[in-house]
Design a protein around this nucleic acid. Structure first.
Lengths: 339, 339
DNA sequence: ATCTTCTACCAAAGCGCTTTGAAAATTTGA
DNA sequence: TCAAATTTTCAAAGCGCTTTGGTAGAAGAT
């Protein structure tokens, strides 16, 4: 059943039927209803390819991920993806996922744009300086960033308040008497890692505590790395009394490290982490329950997709910028410093 | 730059240019080279929508995942996805990801087929009885299963030798003197879980050991659930001396449970797990290193995509069935049973 | 030299939709 | 009542490709 047949069936022109279905005003309500009902009854579905060809719009957005980079290592990404996919499915927009080899990333963006394969992009894990933002901005194609960047270009984004979250978490630890606080952070080039460090440093500065660079670690966010780096920090002669971790996975490694050293978490060493709300690794079920700053990444994906659709529909990037607040959840993994 | 312009530029007809680029024989080698070079130089890229409309093929395959089901909980899925995406990117085939709400799953398949949105599907985590297989087979649309199912229908698949892997792992434990072996398995309705149990039971039977149903647990594969169920098993009066886990994540939970009870892994209790090769949680870096049956799920995704493309190109499902072997890696988490 | 087969190319139709420009039908104004 | 304005509908063009059904020209057969 295609447009032509449907129109013939109704004794109308294709024009009228098309307009009736697409909500154009120059169709009487009577015919519109008649057309809608017939379309429903006959299960008419417009051919996507034909529509794309005619309109130039693809009804598709893409996420490009480099095979070799950390996205793949990162369970957070899947949860984020789930949120994105949910919103897009709601609006019947297609989500295409594209893997690229090491150095093809920018070229892949360029190709998809040139071939008119997509209406827009979701760009995740932005770097402090991010070429993708510059490129997409130059190409003048809609995109939304999951996070922010220093790269100068007008772009839409959804970020969480990384700086605020880590400032408050650090302040909490300081208020509990901690002075040597280790920071297990994400990779240095990632924007969110920088913001989190900034929050941490701001809180220390506000309390007149001199930061110790040796207490700050930048690395990938896996359990193993958390274990290794926490072990190293806790083995220092002047052992930190608290650890601030950029993900539950890192904290999980830190728990293991502390246990290995016979340290009791929440007593000998306090641990607090940022929790992206991963469904398979829950902070509250760890032993002891892990205090966190929390902002569900899946909900972020959903909202981000909304922003992208708005961007595609012509809203300017300036109107599509959001910073989600972050909650601080106190649990037994942190405690007053023993004197 | 479109076909028409390219043809005009070359002084050829669109027909000839199209044929030259698509490798049809009725073009002289001389012109073909000339056309190819010009296309390259002028950066001609065929419009995907137009091609789809003309050919009826979309150059797209889809993976549908239910928002509420366990795929999302499952980091294995992301790694699998990465493998699929890599192969598809190599062949410039688009991968679309589609989320569905609770009961829309089958309807979503139907819609995508009816709207001619995709050339084929990848179906993951098959159930023992799987309606999707029946539906897609009835709709006569290409698809490949990641795993197998009891549902009667001719289908292509890539599976790993779950039965063999768990049979050998169990045999190894038996050989080391273990008699009470706990099985931390995936959810009961999943086909691979059934196969793994079958392997486990076969090994016990081969050594004349009566299986204890109380030692078999079916549940989701998360760290927390591994912890809970392993705790329960290890608290039994007749404590199992070995645990066989369906994923590293489960084993990870089991490690925690054992430690809580003051048991030394590899001595008081042996642990072996199936390892899908997740990059962020490595069996070999656990303490003690975790013995595993291993089959990288990412490579599986890549191969599966190859099979699907072959299926789309008309190969019959019967020719597209593979069972990948599984390696058994001995590490310190297993040891001879103490007498 | 004529007729038949290939080879290498082409014009035009068609895929199923949207959209332009115009016509028909209806309502409004005086 | 008739022209003007408005509403509703339509025919046809166009999106950029593939593919059908050709036609020239070269090669081979007689």
């Amino acid at each position: 059943m295609n447009l032509k047949e449907l129109a013939a069936h109704l004794g109308l022109s294709q024009t009228t039927v098309s307009r009736a279905l697409n909500g154009y005003p120059e169709v009487s309500e009577a015919t519109r209803t008649r057309v809608r009902e017939a379309a429903e009854r006959l299960e008419y579905r417009p051919n996507a390819a034909a529509r794309r060809l005619a309109t130039g719009r693809t009804g598709t957005v893409a996420i490009i991920f480099p095979s070799e980079r950390s996205l793949l290592l990162d369970p957070h990404f899947l949860d984020f993806l789930a949120g994105v996919a949910e919103k897009l499915a709601d609006d019947d927009v297609e989500l295409t996922l594209r893997a690229t080899r090491r150095n093809d990333e920018l070229e892949t963006y360029r190709r998809l744009v040139r071939n008119r394969r997509v209406d827009g992009f979701i760009v995740s894990s932005p770097l402090i300086e991010d070429e993708r933002v510059r490129l997409l901005s130059d190409l003048d194609v809609p995109f939304v960033l999951h996070g922010r960047t220093d790269t100068q270009a007008p772009y839409a984004y959804l970020d969480i308040d990384n700086e605020g979250a880590f400032r408050r978490a650090t302040e909490l630890l300081v208020d509990l008497g901690h002075r040597r606080i280790g920071l297990l952070n994400g990779k240095r080039e990632l924007n969110f890692a920088r913001d989190r460090e900034a929050g941490y440093l701001a809180a220390l500065a506000a309390h007149g505590i001199a930061p110790d660079p040796g207490l700050i670690v930048n690395a990938a966010m896996t359990e193993e790395i958390g274990y290794r780096n926490a072990s190293a920090l806790l083995a220092r002669p002047q052992r930190p009394t608290a650890l601030l971790a950029a993900s539950v996975l890192l904290a999980f490694g830190a728990y293991r490290a502390a246990r290995d050293l016979g340290l009791v978490i929440g007593k000998d060493v306090s641990v607090i982490a940022h929790d992206d709300g991963l469904p398979f690794l829950k902070a509250e079920t760890l032993d002891p329950p892990l205090a966190t700053t929390v902002s569900p990444i899946r909900a972020g994906g959903y909202r981000l997709a909304e922003l992208l659709l708005a961007r595609i529909n012509g809203n300017p990037p300036e109107d599509l910028r959001e910073v989600a607040p972050v909650d601080l959840v106190f649990r037994a993994s942190i405690g007053r410093m023993l004197t």
